[in-house]
Computed example of a mutant assay.
Amino acid sequence: MTDAPAQGRSVVFASLLMALMLTIWPLPEAIAPFRPDWSALFLIYWIMALPHRFNVGTAWCVGLILDVLTGSLLGQHAIALAITGVLVAMSHLRVRVFPVWQQAMTVMVLLAVNELILILVEGATGQLYDLEWRWAPIVTGMLFWPWVLFFLRSLRRRFDVS
């Protein structure tokens, strides 16, 4: 561990804000079910890239903000993103060395775990709906992962985020 001060936190928080904005951005009804979970994708990247700076606490806070923005049960996305963050933090050393296609498959599994937790919470509270389209954001998230990876990696390198 280094004692160097963190650089570029504002870049990370700006990217997470962008992910939250993409999450609530209105889409046409035909493609809305295919919207990837941008918050989860961006958090997976930042926790994988800088686990000593951004971790489960960051995921919990982003999840609470996401709950407020979407009007869902308070803590629903927070617990799902926190558990996903724990899984990323536990496996980040292995996943970072994977080729991009294997990372995309791993991200698909992480997004599926995230979605399963959301389904369990909604089922427990009696708010479960649209089960036939719950797989769509998982698949689109996997397909968007290479672009998210390259975009955030270029941001991290350009602004020397550490």
Rank of each mutant, 00 (worst) to 15 (best):
A40Y: 05
V86I: 14
L66M: 11
M48Q: 09
F42R: 00
M90D: 13
I31F: 02
A80I: 02
V86R: 02
A40R: 08
W25F: 13
Q7G: 10
M90N: 13
V88F: 06
I24C: 08
P26S: 03
V12L: 09
L74M: 12
V86C: 03
I31Y: 03
W60R: 00
A80C: 06
V62T: 12
I47H: 08
L74N: 04
L73A: 11
L69I: 03
Y45A: 08
E29K: 11
A49H: 10
F34H: 09
V86T: 04
P5R: 15
W38S: 00
F34N: 04
A40T: 06
V68L: 10
V11G: 07
A19G: 00
L16V: 10
S15N: 08
N55K: 10
I31T: 12
L64T: 05
A30G: 13
L43C: 07
I65W: 09
I31K: 09
M18A: 15
S39N: 09
T23A: 15
I79N: 01
L22M: 15
D67E: 06
V86K: 01
Q76G: 13
A89P: 00
A59H: 07
E29M: 10
P5G: 10
R35I: 12
V56I: 13
S10N: 12
A19M: 00
V62I: 13
G57I: 05
P28L: 09
V62H: 07
V56Y: 04
G85C: 10
T84F: 12
S39P: 12
I79S: 10
Q76W: 09
I79F: 14
L66E: 15
M90R: 03
A30C: 05
G57C: 02
G71Y: 04
A4I: 11
D37H: 14
F54S: 06
G71S: 07
V11H: 11
S15Q: 13
Y45H: 09
N55G: 12
F34I: 07
P28K: 13
V62A: 06
L87T: 12
D37P: 03
L69V: 02
Q7H: 11
A19I: 00
A19Y: 00
Q76A: 15
R53M: 05
A6Y: 11
L22C: 07
A49L: 14
S39E: 08
G57Y: 01
D67K: 08
A82N: 02
R53V: 09
G75S: 06
L43Q: 05
A59E: 03
F42I: 00
A80R: 01
A89H: 14
F42D: 00
M21A: 13
D37C: 10
V88Y: 09
R53H: 07
V11W: 14
I79T: 04
L41T: 02
A19H: 00
L74D: 12
V62E: 01
F54L: 06
W38N: 00
S72P: 08
